[in-house]
Design a binder for these strands. Structure first.
Length: 482
RNA sequence: GGCGAGGUCGCCAAGUGGUAAGGCCGGGCUCUGCAAAAGCCCUAUCGCGGGUUCGAUUCCCGCCCUCGCCUCCA
């Protein structure tokens, strides 16, 4: 597999350092509220990345942290009147629930910052010893950026000029640092932190944000590992600071490869609560859409390309045309699968384990290869539909159909698509309440008697109850109106 | 001001130095008592102006516009 590497700014082949298992770290969420669909673009593409690696025959070891102590978690937990732990547990559970709905594979390990305070303190000690850190009079500890020669390599800091306060964020003058670019490793206890402080050789306080990732990477992935990933906004300063901390400590290159994901835009701009275009999975579900539909939208653009999530239609109404389109596309995939399955005589969907074992791509090999080529998800999607159109399912032998189906499901598994049930295939039809089903039967009888007015009357009655009856070759199907 | 990304059919979005995938929407056809559903088919010369080239949407230069980041936002 090939993937763009932020450090070298080139597309490079991926190979595990140990020759067996690809070990990587993804910066996870700060658990102080529901994750939004932009966060999920990142996590979903990281998931596609992992699935593609695994399906191409490589074992993986995936670590993703939970940030459960920082300004926001502390502030909001106190505002909510709960302990930091209870508060972050709640949002962690919610995050997991959303991830499950989106069909994201659980990381092999999900360490949290609070559970690794000692590791972080130990790391600060090492940095102090090596002259990369200093304590300020108030008991905070800072990393001395000027002590690390390579600082800024990832974000090409040497080629840029930092404009102080350009982001609108005001420098925190409650702490005193030797240089504005120095960053906190340890933050001295403050009044507004409440009970959230830990003891350290430098006094009571809490760790700085960047440090947790360095400490946990080292603990679980070692001094050097294969790949580190996160949203583009983390390139600077977060990842830059992680590199400075880790490499100053160990003297070794932290990660071989840096994988960054471009942000999701909503209706052409950044998502923000004030702009009213801030969406969570829950909101989209309330609007009648599924996580699978969102997932389809999220993978519809290349990860290094901004993806414009269209929520409002041409009239400015919030109708989510992007999700509507995804629904149709997914339905087509599902119908194709039903037809293909019927041809094989094996209705069971091949499981992930089966797909891992086989490499038979058949007509869908090109689509999978698109994923291996810098994770080109939109290209893969295009190739899937092209292959579907080109395949004459009816002419396939059951053996050919079986092979094609494995190839088809292999790409679907890499994309993490769970196909919706197809109307009339026992999925949605089964949900129809008895009285609706009875009316439908009556209509069927009226149709057989060629009593068209009665048949149409019954169809309208069913429609008034929120269901739609559609005739098929065999009979009819019922599905909820939306 | 600096850095980065980008402007491809109504919308979303790939891609290539030789005349532009795919999805949605729309239109047409088939099927159907009608309708829906389903199936099939159809729709672009790639922001603007130069240059290089036999040939550029794809390379170079300039311009316009959009978006993101610039110390704790994925």
């Amino acid at each position: 597999m090939k993937l763009f590497d932020t450090m070298s700014r080139t597309v490079r082949d991926l190979a595990p350092r140990d020759g067996a298992t690809y070990r990587f770290y993804c910066c996870g969420p700060t658990v102080y509220g529901p994750a939004h669909i932009g966060n999920f673009r990142t996590f979903t593409l990281q998931d596609v990345f992992r699935r593609t690696l695994e399906l191409s025959g490589l074992a993986t070891f995936h670590v993703r942290n939970l940030t459960d102590v920082d300004d926001k978690t502390i502030r909001d937990s106190r505002a909510a009147g709960s302990t930091l732990g209870d508060f972050t547990d709640h949002w962690r559970d919610r995050f997991h629930a959303d991830c499950d709905k989106l069909n994201l594979l659980r990381p092999h390990l999900e360490p949290s910052a609070v559970a690794h305070i000692p590791h972080q303190i130990a790391m600060i000690g090492e940095l102090m010893e090596k002259g990369h850190a200093y304590a300020s009079p108030d008991g905070s500890v800072y990393y001395r950026v000027s002590s690390f020669r390579d600082y800024g390599r990832l974000s090409r800091l040497d080629q840029r000029e930092l404009r102080e306060g350009a982001s609108g964020a005001v420098a925190d003058d409650e702490y005193d640092k030797d240089s504005v670019s120095d960053f906190a490793l340890w933050k001295a206890r403050r009044e507004e932190d409440g009970d959230n402080f830990w003891d350290s050789p430098w006094g009571l306080g809490r760790p700085g944000w960047h440090l947790e990732c360095s400490a946990m990477c080292r603990e679980y992935l070692g001094e050097s590992f294969d790949l580190h990933s996160g949203g583009v906004d983390l390139v600077f300063p977060h990842h830059e600071n992680e590199i400075a901390q880790s490499e100053a400590c160990t003297g070794h290159r932290m990660a071989d490869h840096w994988f960054h994901l471009t942000h999701l835009l909503v209706d052409g701009g950044k998502m923000s609560k004030s702009a009213g275009n801030f969406y969570t999975l829950e909101q989209l579900e309330k609007a009648g859409f599924s996580a699978a539909e969102l997932r389809h939208v999220l993978v519809s653009a290349h990860y290094r390309q901004p993806l414009n999530f269209v929520a409002k239609d041409a009239e400015g109404k919030e109708t989510f045309p992007a999700l509507l389109g995804a629904r149709q596309a997914l339905q087509r995939l599902a119908k194709f699968d039903v037809a293909l399955a019927a041809r094989t005589g094996e209705p069971e969907t091949p499981g992930y384990a089966t797909l891992l074992a086989g490499k038979d791509g058949a007509s869908f090999a090109g689509a999978f290869e698109a994923l291996e080529n810098d994770l080109n998800t939109p290209d893969a999607l295009g190739r899937i539909f092209t292959a579907i159109k080109a395949l004459d399912v009816a002419s396939l032998s059951s053996e050919e159909a079986r092979r094609e189906r494995l190839g088809f499901h292999r790409v679907l598994a890499a994309l993490g698509f769970a196909l919706p049930s197809v109307a009339g295939e026992g999925g949605r039809e089964a949900e129809a309440p008895a009285d609706i089903a009875r009316l439908a039967e009556e209509r069927r009888a009226a149709k057989l008697a060629k009593d068209w007015p009665e048949a149409d009357r019954l169809r309208n009655e069913i429609a008034a109850l929120g269901w739609e009856v559609k005739d098929t070759k065999e009979g009819y199907e019922l599905c909820p109106k939306n």
